[in-house]
């Protein structure tokens, strides 16, 4: 014996209604979607939080002004307290200070190619990147190699006999 499933597909003159079967199938689908969303929505938002990070600027005194002679380039380490995820740490960074006719320039030591640590060679008056052969002149302009941009310059100020550098954190 056959029983009408109310599938809505036949032409038996029956009303086109959503069958029980279809209704349940759709419901299961919708519930699955909701469960999926309930897990992955919050998790993706949670993991994506670094995207909302705002850069802040911080002024740090790094060197006595008198310690940097005319035409001199100095590698200056300085330590700042930074928030590293869940902990506060003292972290040491390095900046290259150059005094020339245009004043004091503070160069970031990360190669603009892929971020290796560049090194200054006084005898050549150039910065060399150990990774893929990037070379910069003493103002940070690219001389050769793959780096696409000159070295990043930090803002510098001289206040009360000290050289201050602005870092973004």
């Amino acid at each position: 014996m056959c029983e009408c499933q109310n599938c809505g597909n036949c032409e038996n003159g029956q009303k086109k209604v959503v069958s029980r079967r279809k209704f349940m199938a759709w419901s299961v689908g919708a519930i699955n979607l909701a469960v999926f969303g309930a897990v992955f929505g919050p998790v993706l938002g949670f993991l994506g939080s670094p995207l909302r990070h705002r850069q802040m600027k911080q002024w740090v005194p790094v060197l006595d002004e008198g310690a940097l002679g005319e035409g001199e380039t100095k590698e200056v380490p300085f330590t700042v307290r930074v928030k590293d995820g869940y902990e506060m740490v003292d972290r040491t960074y390095v900046v290259y200070l150059v005094r020339s006719e245009e004043g004091i320039v503070a160069l970031d030591p990360s190669c603009t190619h892929l971020g290796c640590r560049i090194k200054f060679q006084a005898d050549k008056n150039r910065y060399f990147c150990p990774c893929h052969g990037g070379v910069f002149d003493n103002r940070g302009t690219v001389v050769s190699g793959p780096p696409p941009k000159p070295l990043v310059r930090h803002a510098v100020e001289v206040r009360e006999g000290k050289i201050w550098v602005q870092r973004s954190v």
Partner: peptide, 26 residues
């Protein structure tokens, strides 16, 4: 992060990519 005496180098099987980075034009 501040150390200077270190030359970064990847695991050996990524060295092909590392070399590729050296030869593409600026």
């Amino acid at each position: 992060p501040a150390g200077t005496d270190f030359t970064p180098r990847p695991e050996w099987y990524f060295l092909g990519l590392y070399e590729l980075l050296k030869i593409v034009p600026q």
